[in-house]
């Protein structure tokens, strides 16, 4: 089947198998920043924003995302103009192997949109769908705090 998707602000017309997940469609069309870590909704490496809400793209049929707005980590920033969350993660050492990081960035973005000044407990709960095996999460939490701080100041 064919569907129109709005990915990172641009419209794409994509042909795909009706059983494909959004994850498969995104990766096969070059959005490799969306990572496949488990394909069962438990690792969060494939997290994207679907109409503004964080979802595991492996748990979404592409057919149900037609016509919707999809934002991946690359939609938030690039290497030369990173989003404050991406910058903060890199700065504090929240990125080790980095395979889980785009997913964490998306979950963090979703959190900070809704709650610009989260407590540590709120941060941890907001990241309850993301696994990381390298960092022990310490620096990731720190990265979220730093990003929140900077994003608040930017707005002022």
């Amino acid at each position: 089947m064919t569907g129109k998707f709005r990915i990172n602000g641009r419209e794409y017309s994509i042909e795909f198998d009706p059983r494909d997940t959004l994850l498969t469609v995104l990766r096969e069309n070059g959005f490799t920043e969306v990572k496949e870590g488990c394909s069962e909704g438990t690792c969060g490496a494939c997290a994207v924003l679907l109409d503004g809400k964080v979802v595991n793209s492996c748990m979404v049929f592409a057919a149900t995302a037609i016509g919707k707005e999809i934002i991946t980590s690359k939609g938030l920033g690039d290497q030369n103009n990173p989003h404050p969350i991406q910058e903060a993660f890199a700065e504090v050492g929240a990125v080790q192997c980095g395979f889980c990081t785009p997913g964490f960035v998306i979950s963090t973005f979703y959190l900070l949109q809704r709650n610009p000044d989260p407590t540590e407990d709120e941060i941890k709960k907001a990241l309850d769908g993301n696994l990381c095996r390298c960092t022990g999460y310490v620096k990731i939490i720190e990265g979220v705090k730093l990003a929140a701080e900077r994003m608040k100041n930017e707005k002022v």
Partner: peptide, 9 residues
């Protein structure tokens, strides 16, 4: 229940 991204689905 489940996790933040799953609860959105």
């Amino acid at each position: 229940a489940a996790s933040t991204p799953l609860r959105n689905r």
